[in-house]
Deep mutational scan, measured.
Amino acid sequence: NKASVVANQLIPINTALTLIMMKAEVVTPMGIPAEEIPKLVGMQVNRAVPLGTTLMPDKVKNYE
């Protein structure tokens, strides 16, 4: 099972992601793969992401 990116804290809307905000966890359904964490640093979320929520591609601005 592959790990996904999960919010390590509440991430407010329009916040630029940092390493400390994210952790890798095996979750269902799968979100953004954990190996993409370095790519996500500096990207902004387009909505608030509660603690423990899986980061889905549609929650990150300009994620492809």
Rank of each mutant, 00 (worst) to 15 (best):
M56W: 06
I13C: 14
N8M: 09
E25I: 10
A7E: 01
A34E: 05
A24I: 08
E64R: 12
I37L: 08
V27R: 15
A3F: 10
T15C: 09
L51S: 13
E36K: 12
L10D: 15
A34H: 05
P33G: 07
K39L: 12
K2N: 12
Y63N: 02
V60S: 04
M22E: 03
E35S: 14
K23Q: 06
Q44K: 11
L51Y: 15
N8S: 14
S4H: 04
E35G: 11
K39I: 12
A16D: 10
Y63G: 01
Q9S: 07
I11Y: 04
M21W: 05
T53A: 15
L40E: 00
L19C: 13
M30W: 10
V49I: 15
L17I: 12
V26W: 12
T18F: 06
V60I: 14
P38M: 09
T28H: 13
Q9K: 09
K23E: 05
A48G: 06
Q9Y: 06
V41I: 12
K59M: 15
G52F: 04
P29Y: 07
I11Q: 01
G31M: 03
A16C: 14
T28G: 02
L55P: 03
N62R: 08
V41H: 02
K39R: 14
V6P: 01
M43I: 04
P33Y: 07
A34Y: 05
V27F: 02
L55N: 00
E35T: 13
N62C: 13
N14G: 10
I13T: 10
E35R: 12
M21R: 00
I11F: 04
G42A: 04
A48M: 14
M56I: 05
I13N: 10
N14K: 06
N46G: 06
Y63P: 04
M21C: 07
I32L: 04
R47L: 10
P50Y: 08
V6R: 01
N46R: 10
L19Y: 11
V60M: 05
V27H: 02
M56F: 12
Y63R: 00
L10C: 15
A48V: 12
G31Y: 03
P29Q: 06
P50R: 08
I32K: 00
L40F: 03
I20Y: 14
G42V: 07
L51E: 15
D58S: 10
E35Y: 13
V49G: 02
L17M: 11
S4M: 03
P50L: 09
N8E: 04
N46L: 15
K39H: 13
L19T: 08
L17T: 00
K23A: 09
M30K: 12
K59D: 15
T53F: 09
S4I: 03
P57C: 06
K39M: 13
N14C: 14
K23S: 09
G31I: 04
K2A: 13
V27G: 01
M22A: 02
A16F: 15
V60H: 02
E25A: 14
L10Q: 10
A7F: 03
Q44F: 15
E64D: 12
I13H: 06
R47T: 15
K61W: 10
T53Y: 10
Y63A: 01
T28L: 12
V41C: 08
G42T: 03
K59L: 15
V26C: 12
L40D: 01
V26G: 04
V41P: 01
V60F: 06
P57A: 10
Q9R: 12
A24N: 02
E36P: 01
N62S: 08
G52W: 05
V26L: 11
Q44P: 01
Q9P: 03
Y63S: 00
I13P: 11
P38D: 09
I37K: 00
M21T: 03
L19M: 11
K2W: 13
I37F: 02
Q44W: 09
M22Y: 06
G52P: 01
G52L: 06
K61S: 09
E36T: 05
P29S: 04
Y63F: 07
N8V: 11
I20T: 12
S4A: 03
V49Y: 05
P12N: 08
V5Y: 06
Q44E: 13
P29V: 07
P50I: 07
E36V: 07
T53G: 12
D58M: 05
A48I: 11
E25K: 14
G52A: 02
I11W: 02
I37N: 04
M22G: 04
L19A: 09
M43G: 00
P33D: 09
D58R: 05
V5L: 04
E25F: 09
P29L: 07
K39E: 09
I32D: 00
L19H: 07
G42F: 08
E35V: 13
G42R: 03
R47Y: 12
M43L: 11
A7S: 08
N14H: 13
E36D: 12
V5S: 01
E25C: 15
L10S: 12
L19Q: 07
P29G: 03
I13K: 14
M22K: 00
V26Q: 09
V5I: 14
E36L: 11
A16P: 14
P38R: 09
I32T: 00
K61Q: 10
L17N: 00
K39S: 12
I20L: 13
S4G: 02
L51R: 15
L51V: 13
V26M: 12
G42N: 04
P12G: 05
M22L: 10
I20R: 14
N1P: 14
V60E: 03
P33A: 09
L10A: 12
Q44M: 13
E64Y: 13
M21P: 01
T28N: 12
M56T: 15
K59T: 15
M22P: 00
E36C: 14
L55V: 06
A24K: 06
T28E: 13
I32F: 05
P38K: 09
E35A: 13
P57L: 01
A24M: 07
V26P: 05
P57D: 03
N1C: 15
P33S: 10
T18E: 10
A3I: 03
G42H: 02
Q44Y: 15
A7W: 06
P29I: 08
N8I: 08
K61R: 13
Q9I: 11
L51D: 11
Q9V: 13
M21S: 05
L19E: 09
T15N: 01
P29F: 09
M30Q: 12
K23L: 08
P12F: 08
L55F: 07
P50M: 09
K59S: 15
M30T: 10
T53W: 09
P57R: 08
N46E: 07
V6Q: 00
E36M: 14
D58G: 09
K39G: 09
G52D: 05
V41Q: 04
G42D: 03
A24H: 04
K61F: 10
A34K: 02
G42E: 03
L17A: 00
M30Y: 12
I20D: 12
D58L: 05
T28D: 14
T18P: 00
V49N: 04
Q44A: 08
D58N: 11
